[in-house]
Each structure stands twice: as structure tokens, then as C-alpha cells.
């Protein structure tokens, strides 16, 4: 076993053990904190697929995070009052159905956004993904049916067969399982021919075309998959907070996801997990001391970018293939 695998296993074990112990000690706050970590790690794992492996610096992933959140919120509010959804679809509070719908909607949104954005590169790609996300953000703000600027509250958390989602530990385990499934998928993708081509496209797209692979399709697929994972995280995030807010779609959120990926280690399988743990713990520890905690986050990020470009995972496990 190499060091990175060992570190990944430690991260997975710690993230699982901490809330179980906290729950046993009757400290639900820490369970919620771990749930927040798992969900943000899932969102960042989605972004990592595009940014880490594909080199696609999307500054608009908050849009997918928010779409997922609103799907959870809209389903919950309709199910609450037993109102059918638009197009006469039956409302349900079952998470798997909500996830499926969130995934489909994110894929549907990511397809045209990706198809247009991927015609540009570099700073233009960053700006065009930001522009799309801001469009969706302002749409959510000006949509009074679902709360507009005030957001949409979820009176009762959506449910999952066989589990009590109101129980903090049960809900954590759901989020953890989805995160692990997403990481397993990322791992399979990374080592598949598709993943190799994606990484080759990041390196040099002309060279890839010259061996007969069209970079555009590979990147678009990665972008859509990435959006779907981030969207799933959004649905869970709204359920965690019992609230879907337009701020989930704001550009701050997109920036936060990029920060998570960079902190943890760009293009490293467990980078998003390491990044989310560090971020949430800093937010908790420094946020308790000062409201201006992001100043310190900024300093840490500066340190990572200057001295530890592989992020936390790079610092612990050394350089990987991706540098």
C-alpha cells in the first residue's frame, strides 16, 4: 500500500469514526459538523473531476449545487402539502427519487453550459461558467413561487427508506455513503481509458486529437458528471440545513468549492475530503474566535499555493502524477 492509499483510508476512517463517537457522547452538533464536511467533500469531489483531472477551472459549480438544493427544497415543500409537482408529477419526499431528479436536472443544465463554455479556454472558460451560474442565481432570486431572495425552507427533512433522517447519525451515514460511492466512481473513472484521455486532454489537446480522440466530447462528459456529483451534494446540503437558499448558487460558493479542492490537493482522489475537513474545522475553530476568520483562511490558502501545491494530500503523501 502506498502512502496516499494509507492516508485516504485514515481520512475515511476518521470521518466515519468522529461523528459515531460524538453521537454516542450525545453531541449532535459535531455530528452535524461531520455531515457538513461529508457534503462539502462530495461537492468538491464533483468539481475535482472537472478541475483536478480535466484541468477545467469551473467557476460556476455553485449553480449545480444550488439546483440540487432547490430540487430537495421543492420536493419537500410539495410533499409536505401533498401538492403535485409541475407537469403533474407526483410529489415525494424519498431521497433516492430526489437525487435522481437532481442528477438529471444538473446533467440537463450542465450539457448546454458545458457545450458552450468548453469552446473557450483559460480565463474565458472561468468567466463564462461564472456568467452561467450568475444567471441561474438571479433566476432563483427572482422566483417568488419558491421563496425568491428569502430561499425555501424545508420543514421536514426528506426521508430515506429504512432510516430516520431526523436522526443526526442516520443522516450523516447517508451522506457518508453517497460520498464514498462518489469517490469510488471517481477512482474508477480516473483509471479508465476515459480518465486517461481526460488527463491527456488537460496536458495537450492537440496531441490527443492527433491520436484520434476528440477532446471536446471527453471534457463535456467529465463536466456533466462533475455537475451531477456537485448537484447531489446540493440536495443533501439543503436537507442538512433544512433550507435551500439562493446563496448556494452565488459565486462565493463556486469559489469555496475551488478553495476546497486546492486546499486538499488538486486531482487527488481524497483531496476534496482533506480539503473539506480542513476548511470546516478552520471555519469552526477560527469562526469561534473572530468573525473575520476568512482572513486566516486566505493566509492558509496563500501558504498552500506557495509552499504546498499538492495541498494537504500532497503534503502528506508526496507528489503524485498530477503536478
Amino acid at each position: 500500500m502506498n502512502r496516499e492509499t494509507a492516508f485516504n483510508l485514515v481520512l475515511a476512517a476518521v470521518l466515519l469514526a468522529a461523528p459515531v463517537i460524538a453521537f454516542a457522547a450525545n453531541e449532535p452538533f459535531y455530528v452535524a459538523l461531520a455531515t457538513r464536511i461529508a457534503i462539502l467533500a462530495l461537492a468538491a469531489a464533483g468539481l475535482n473531476l472537472a478541475l483536478g483531472f480535466g484541468g477545467l477551472v469551473s467557476f460556476g459549480h455553485a449553480a449545480f449545487f444550488g439546483i440540487g438544493g432547490y430540487v430537495a427544497g421543492i420536493f419537500a415543500s410539495h410533499a409536505m402539502y401533498s401538492e403535485p409537482l409541475p407537469f403533474g408529477l407526483p410529489a415525494t419526499d424519498q431521497m433516492p427519487v430526489i437525487w435522481l431528479v437532481a442528477a438529471l436536472l444538473c446533467a440537463l443544465a450542465a450539457l448546454p453550459i458545458g457545450a458552450i463554455s468548453l469552446r473557450t479556454t483559460g480565463v474565458y472558460f472561468i468567466m463564462i461558467t461564472l456568467a452561467f451560474a450568475q444567471m441561474i442565481y438571479y433566476f432563483a432570486i427572482s422566483w417568488p413561487a419558491y421563496g425568491g431572495e428569502d430561499g425555501l425552507s424545508i420543514p421536514v427533512r426528506n426521508s430515506f427508506v429504512g432510516l430516520n433522517t431526523a436522526n443526526a447519525l442516520h443522516f450523516f451515514l447517508i451522506c457518508y455513503a453517497v460520498l464514498m460511492a462518489a469517490l469510488a466512481l471517481t477512482w474508477r473513472i480516473r483509471d479508465s481509458r476515459f480518465g486517461m484521455a481526460l488527463q491527456a486532454a488537460r496536458q495537450n489537446e492537440v496531441r490527443l486529437a492527433a491520436v484520434g480522440i476528440r477532446p471536446f466530447r471527453i471534457r463535456l462528459t467529465a463536466f456533466v458528471l462533475s455537475a451531477v456529483l456537485t448537484g447531489l451534494a446540493g440536495a443533501l446540503f439543503a436537507d442538512l440545513n433544512r433550507f435551500a437558499s439562493p446563496s448556494m448558487m452565488s459565486w462565493h460558493m463556486s469559489g469555496e468549492l475551488i478553495v476546497l479542492v486546492i486546499l486538499g490537493g488538486t486531482g487527488r482522489l481524497f483531496g476534496p475530503v482533506a480539503g473539506a475537513i480542513l476548511y470546516v474545522l478552520l471555519e469552526y475553530a477560527l469562526g469561534g474566535m473572530t468573525e473575520r476568520w476568512q482572513l486566516f483562511l486566505g493566509l492558509i490558502l496563500l501558504g498552500v499555493v506557495l509552499f504546498a501545491r499538492g495541498g494537504v494530500v500532497g503534503l502528506v503523501a508526496g507528489k503524485a502524477r498530477y503536478d
Binding site: 496536458q203 492537440v206 486529437a209 492527433a210 491520436v211 484520434g212 502524477r321
Partner: peptide, 22 residues
């Protein structure tokens, strides 16, 4: 270019252009 390669032209470019990160 990718269609041309798929038709059966295998290019070994000048300067040994491998994918260094694979």
C-alpha cells in the same frame, strides 16, 4: 484532426510528444 487520425493516420510528432502525466 481526430477524424483524420481515426481514418488510420498515426502521427509520431516531432519532439517526442508523449503525455507526461500518464
Amino acid at each position: 484532426p481526430h477524424r483524420i487520425a481515426q481514418l488510420g493516420i498515426g502521427l509520431v510528432p516531432e519532439g517526442r510528444r508523449c503525455f507526461p502525466n500518464l
